[in-house]
């Protein structure tokens, strides 16, 4: 039996890699993909818990997370398209209109 904290460590690692990608990459689409990565890490963690605690509620939550992630991806990408149309670039450094 694989100890549970191996899975949780894996989940943490993927989450941190996703966060690293979000904080460092300059391309907006890749930033978005990093967010998906983070969500997946959370999914792994939830399924793990559900398995080890013999409870299906983790799976239910994962189901909903995947649903919402899909919706979010759709809308986010639509926004990126609209943004690209205005700014002709997907480089995040250019998008500082809210600079104070």
């Amino acid at each position: 039996m694989v100890p549970i904290h191996w899975y949780l460590t894996l989940s943490a690692a993927v989450f941190m890699i996703g966060m690293f990608g979000f904080l460092t990459r300059r391309n907006i689409i890749i930033m978005f993909m990093s967010v998906e990565l983070m969500l997946n890490a959370v999914n792994i963690s939830l399924v793990t818990f559900s398995h080890y605690l013999q409870d299906l509620r983790g799976h239910i939550l994962v189901f909903f997370i995947i649903t919402v992630a899909a919706a979010e991806a759709a809308i986010g990408l639509a926004i990126i398209i609209a943004l690209f149309r205005n700014k002709q670039t997907a480089h995040v450094d250019e998008m500082n209109e809210m600079k104070g």
Partner: peptide, 11 residues
Amino acid sequence: LVAVVGAVVLA
């Protein structure tokens, strides 16, 4: 549903 409508509207 919101996602579908929103994506169409935004893009």
